[in-house]
Design a protein around this nucleic acid. Structure first.
Lengths: 219, 219
DNA sequence: AAAATTATTTAGATTTGCCTAAAAATAAAT
DNA sequence: ATTTATTTTTAGGCAAATCTAAATAATTTT
């Protein structure tokens, strides 16, 4: 079965809203999708006949198992493409969202899976959000990308964004690993580099690329 | 200015038909786009108001300079993506067309240019068609991908599809270079390998990947 | 040059996704 | 427990891109 870009966007929006809410209202959806409640109602009726969601008048909406599968497939594509844009094409992590919004609707299953292989099965996108695998499973960890922390925050490294030997070599050299505790001292807007301090060492600066590859838990 | 996928497809189709014809007819377009002549007429009127083509009732159609620029931008994207799919993601060269038909409509200019850099500014796509550069210029050479030649054809190597050191090393080892004359002896469907003969050497087999990287002129 | 054929355009409908305005249902407030 | 406010749905329409059927122009044939 194959769905339109619009339909996919509705399913994705419901999926994200459902995370917090459980059930999702017409108005919430209209706000997120920048459209009108009346339009949402129309689309919900349509998506119900396609069995992507369960919906009763005035009762809000929930994805079916089928709808969840579709949502996860779209999210997987979005986050894999974001990873590609940042790590392969050297985009800044803050400029990839819109492009990924388009790329996530490319239909080829084979493309996604080959992209996944090429990228080395990354587990987190450049914003630290988990990337669903081809079965739709994702490691949900309470973690944040190091680059998103404000100065003064203390955190513990909990994951790295890729398993490339280059990254691991660099981390070894800087003696950063899973479990390392650090504090963000300063952020430099010019090249998005970050000054961090690890207990017992003098503070030092790490690049934007490295900071994006590090996921941390707040402590 | 920004155009719909449908509009871009019309412009691209006209561009390709125009190469042979000069001016393009409504029926030709309908055939190529798998739609009806009446629909074509509607769209031509619309594209005329957008100044992408010049069109007089019953007189056929031609792209304006503006239309040509758009067509070249779309062709550029299509061919760069094909190159990416084959060389980076290891798709077979014969399975990339449909996917590229979708990818070519992704709008980000920055994406295309960064992709071009990443791929090393390739000049020809996996089918041997020239890739327009960011100015819309392309090396138009009368060349064909070696993999497309039928057995019995004689040809001269005129270009290689990439400048990677691995490719060049392999070519050196097989003593193939620009200007080498060869004849296709046999094609093996199983792995798309090809048996070729160079004067003064015994015939030997080259892989699908290598054949795809070689562009030849018929002699 | 008139008749016949083919190509193209017009006219009127359809589908998708959206809109506004008004009605109906639900929730909140008095 | 009514009234008031909010949310949601219905009703009727619009624009894009398509279609079929009919009309008109251009081309070919005789």
């Amino acid at each position: 079965m194959h769905f339109s870009v619009t339909e996919e966007n509705y399913i994705k929006a419901i999926f994200h809203l459902q995370q917090e809410d459980g059930t999702v209202s017409t108005n919430e959806l209209a706000a997120v999708l920048a459209t009108r409640p009346a339009s949402v109602t129309d689309m919900l009726k349509k998506l119900k006949t396609k069995k992507l969601l369960s919906y009763e008048k005035y009762k809000g909406v929930r994805l079916t198992a089928e709808g969840k599968r579709l949502a996860l497939a779209v999210v997987r594509k979005h986050r894999l493409w974001e990873y590609f844009l940042v790590h392969t094409l050297q985009f800044g992590w803050d400029e990839v969202h819109e492009v990924a919004e388009e790329l996530e609707h490319i239909t080829s299953r084979k493309l996604v899976d080959k992209l996944d292989v090429f990228l080395g099965y990354p587990k987190f996108d450049p914003h630290g959000d988990p990337i669903p695998d081809s079965q739709g499973k994702m490691q949900q960890q309470q973690q944040v990308n190091l680059i998103d922390l404000p100065p003064g925050t203390a955190a513990e490294v909990s994951a790295v964004g890729s398993q490339s030997t280059e990254l691991l070599e660099l981390l070894r050299h800087k003696s950063i690993g899973i479990g390392t505790r650090l504090e963000v001292k300063k952020k430099f807007g010019f090249d998005h580099s970050i000054e961090i301090k690890i207990k017992g060492q003098t503070a030092f600066i790490i690049s934007q690329q490295l900071a994006q590859a590090l996921f941390v838990k707040l402590i």
